[in-house]
């Protein structure tokens, strides 16, 4: 198996004045093409920092990120991010928000009409075509996140990075959106890396779950394969023994071996 995305000995040290904190220590991970990997850990363990490093929004102190064997250290549309708080530009309509990325990425390869069709295609994928002329303030939180996903997908990323994409949503909307993401993954075969702190979400969606120890100096504590066949159905899995076992493993890791200790 060749590594599609490779995190190679990543360390991250934040320095502020004289004080420096080691946030991440020696992170090694390889992700294959089409794989859905979740990173789970308690808040403050540096998982968002790790995602930012992969996205190129922050640089690793040592080590690096390889995408298709080439080092990436600046942000780009090949690693599109779905941000936790959707980050749609409020002065643009839903359509324009998606179009912004499309115009940039396909400036040379697609004609105007093709770009328009591509934007609409992606809005259709997330079932948001009906709201294309609305502004972000006029749609619900779940809808905003759908548009955020469409914006990322429309850039045709090699890796789709999801930064706690469902964290700010209510439970019902979250479940609905998780199903949508699963369906998209099934249909498009994207490589997806997701940050989450929700155990059920991680087990339901992922092929592999990367569990991180508590910071400072967070490491990868354990990587768990989720050997569940796709497509997965939320209701059937509720009683599935493999699902429950996986869930148990993650819970044990998080709440027994690496219990979150409130920093003094």
């Amino acid at each position: 198996m060749t590594a599609y995305l490779k995190l190679d000995h990543i360390d991250k040290i934040f320095t502020r004045g004289a004080a420096s904190t080691e946030v991440l220590k020696d992170i090694n991970l390889t992700i294959e093409k089409g794989e859905y990997v979740s990173i789970i850990g308690h808040s403050g363990c540096g998982k968002s920092t790790l995602l930012n490093i992969i996205a190129g929004l922050t640089n690793a102190t040592t080590g690096g990120v390889l995408l298709e064997n080439r080092e990436v250290n600046s942000p780009g549309p090949d690693r599109a991010v779905v941000f936790q708080n959707h980050s749609l530009l409020p002065w643009l309509t839903v359509y324009e928000n998606v179009r912004l990325g499309v115009d940039k990425v396909f400036a040379k390869t697609k004609k105007r009409a093709e770009r328009d069709a591509w934007v609409m295609h992606n809005l259709n994928l997330v079932q948001m075509a009906h709201a294309k002329d609305k502004r972000p303030s006029e749609i619900s939180g779940g809808m905003k996140q759908r548009v955020g996903i469409a914006r990322a997908l429309a850039m045709e990323p090699k890796v789709l990075l999801l930064d706690e994409p469902f964290g700010a949503l209510d439970a019902l909307t979250r479940a609905h959106l998780q199903d949508s993401v699963m369906a998209l993954h099934q249909k498009l075969g994207n490589t997806i890396l997701m940050i989450t702190h929700d155990v059920d979400e991680a087990v339901l969606l992922s092929d592999r779950i990367v569990m991180m120890t508590n910071g400072p100096s967070a490491r990868i504590g354990e990587v768990l394969e989720v050997p569940l066949a796709r497509p997965r159905k939320r209701l059937e899995l509720a009683t599935n023994t493999t699902y429950l076992k996986c869930r148990q493993r993650v819970l044990e890791f998080l709440y027994e071996r690496h219990r979150f200790v409130e920093a003094a």
Partner: peptide, 9 residues
């Protein structure tokens, strides 16, 4: 917004 701009390049 700066992150979005950076990702979109």
């Amino acid at each position: 917004y700066r992150n979005v701009a950076a990702v979109v390049q």
